[in-house]
Amino acid sequence: MTDNEISKKVIGCAIEVHKGLGPGLLEKAYQECLFFKIKQAGMLVEKGKALPLTFEDVKLDCGYRLDLLVENTLLIEIKSVNALENIHLAQTLTYLKLGGFKLGLLINFNEILLKNGIRRVINKL
């Protein structure tokens, strides 16, 4: 499956979660439900995967954890905020760079219409 096919399936799962729960819940609730839906769709998904930080050739355990990683390639960053800000995009891009991933989805579940809360983030590697 290509990155685009994976992201399309994940967006479909996110829409199902949003239809079932609606906006206004904590990020953790959306993370758990999206994790369940992605697994149910037959894709490999990891929750809370550690993301080490290497600085000046020293590997540091700073406690960064990815919300979801799908098929070892697609990073999912989940938010439940009034509006996505530039810092959310920057955070997602930084996670992509640190993990060596090409594509991420930044999903804000606190939207009336979920498609307004989805941003594709690309790491140009």
Rank of each mutant, 00 (worst) to 15 (best):
M1W: 02
M1R: 06
M1K: 05
N4Q: 13
E5T: 12
I6K: 08
I6E: 05
K8A: 15
I11W: 09
G12N: 14
I15P: 02
I15A: 04
I15E: 09
E16A: 14
V17H: 03
H18M: 11
H18N: 13
K19T: 05
K19H: 13
L21G: 07
G22T: 05
L25H: 12
K28V: 14
A29E: 01
Y30I: 15
Q31N: 12
Q31C: 10
C33N: 12
C33E: 15
L34F: 12
F36D: 11
K39F: 07
K39Q: 15
Q40N: 08
Q40F: 03
A41T: 09
A41W: 06
A41R: 10
G42L: 13
G42P: 11
M43N: 13
L44Q: 15
V45W: 07
A50L: 14
L53Q: 02
L53W: 03
T54C: 02
E56L: 06
D57Q: 14
D57S: 15
K59R: 13
K59D: 02
C62H: 01
G63H: 03
G63I: 02
L66W: 05
L68A: 09
L69N: 02
L75P: 00
E77Q: 12
E77Y: 05
I78E: 02
I78G: 00
S80N: 03
N82G: 15
N82W: 04
A83F: 00
H88A: 04
Q91N: 11
Y95H: 14
K97W: 01
G99N: 05
G100V: 01
K102S: 10
K102E: 12
K102G: 00
K102Q: 11
G104Y: 07
G104F: 07
L105R: 08
L105S: 08
L106Q: 06
I107F: 00
N108Q: 10
F109I: 09
N110Q: 04
I112L: 12
L113D: 14
L114F: 09
L114G: 09
K115F: 11
K115C: 06
N116Y: 12
G117V: 06
R119S: 12
R120L: 06
R120F: 03
V121Y: 10
V121G: 08
V121C: 13
I122C: 02
N123I: 00
